[in-house]
C-alpha cells in the first residue's frame, strides 16, 4: 500500500507581526508529528516564494496594502481551504486601529508634520513599495475564507487542536480555554 499523500500547506504573514507564526512553532515537538502528515509549500519555514496548489493555506495578518492583496489572492487561487489565523487576519487587529482616520491625515502626520523628521523627508513614492489601502481589512473582506482561528496569537495548543481537527476531517472546535480573541 502506498504511503498516504501528505497534506500540502502554505502559510504567510500579511499585515501581521509573525507572532502567529511563532505560535505555530509553539506546538513544539508535535511539529514532528505534524510533519508526518503535512508538507509545506510557500511559508517562512521553507522560503518558497510563490504558492503552488495546496490543500491548506494559513494567513496571518490583515490586508493593509496592494502587495497583501496580491499574496492573499495567490493563496486563495491555490488553496482548497483558506484559514485566517490570529486577530489581525480575523478583524484587522492592531493595524486596523487606524481605520477611523483618513489615510491622507496619517501619511501627512507620519511623513510631513511629525516632529523629529529629517529635512526634506517626503511620503515614499518608490514604485518598489506597495501602496497602502485607505483602510486595513481583515482577509474575509477581500476573499472567501473557510475557517477562522482567532487569538493574539492563538496558543500552540489551539493551533494544534485546530490543525488536527482539520486534518482528521472534523470541523475545528476549540472550546473554553482554547478560544481566545486576545
Amino acid at each position: 500500500m502506498s504511503e498516504k499523500k501528505k497534506l500540502r500547506v502554505a502559510t504567510t504573514s500579511l499585515a501581521g507581526c509573525f507572532g502567529c507564526h511563532m505560535s505555530i512553532l509553539d506546538i513544539d515537538e508535535r511539529l514532528l508529528d505534524l510533519l508526518e502528515v503535512v508538507e509545506f509549500d510557500r511559508s517562512p519555514i521553507t522560503d518558497i516564494k510563490h504558492c503552488g496548489p495546496c490543500d491548506l493555506g494559513i494567513i496571518e495578518g490583515g490586508v493593509c496594502n496592494a502587495e497583501n492583496v496580491h499574496v492573499l489572492r495567490e493563496f486563495r487561487n491555490n488553496c482548497k481551504i483558506l484559514v485566517a489565523i490570529g486577530a489581525c487576519s480575523v478583524n484587522g487587529g492592531l493595524p486596523a486601529q487606524r481605520n477611523h482616520l483618513e489615510l491622507h491625515d496619517i501619511l501627512t502626520a507620519v511623513y510631513q508634520t511629525e516632529g523629529g523628521l529629517a529635512h526634506g523627508v517626503h511620503i515614499p513614492n518608490d514604485p518598489e513599495l506597495p501602496l497602502p489601502l485607505n483602510q486595513v481589512h481583515p482577509i474575509h473582506e477581500v476573499v472567501k475564507v473557510d475557517y477562522f482561528l482567532p487569538g493574539c496569537p492563538p496558543s500552540g495548543d489551539a493551533i494544534w487542536k485546530f490543525l488536527t481537527d482539520l486534518i482528521a476531517g472534523r470541523t475545528p472546535h476549540l472550546g473554553h480555554g482554547l478560544i481566545h480573541y486576545d
Binding site: 475564507v145 475557517y147 482561528l149 482567532p150 480573541y181
Partner: peptide, 22 residues
C-alpha cells in the same frame, strides 16, 4: 461580550466591519 462569543463558538466577525469613529 467576549466571553459570550467564546461560549457560542464565534470564530469570526463574519460581516464587513463598520470601523466607526468614536
Amino acid at each position: 461580550l467576549q466571553a459570550t462569543a467564546y461560549d457560542l463558538g464565534m470564530m469570526s466577525p463574519h460581516f464587513d466591519h463598520f470601523y466607526p469613529d468614536r
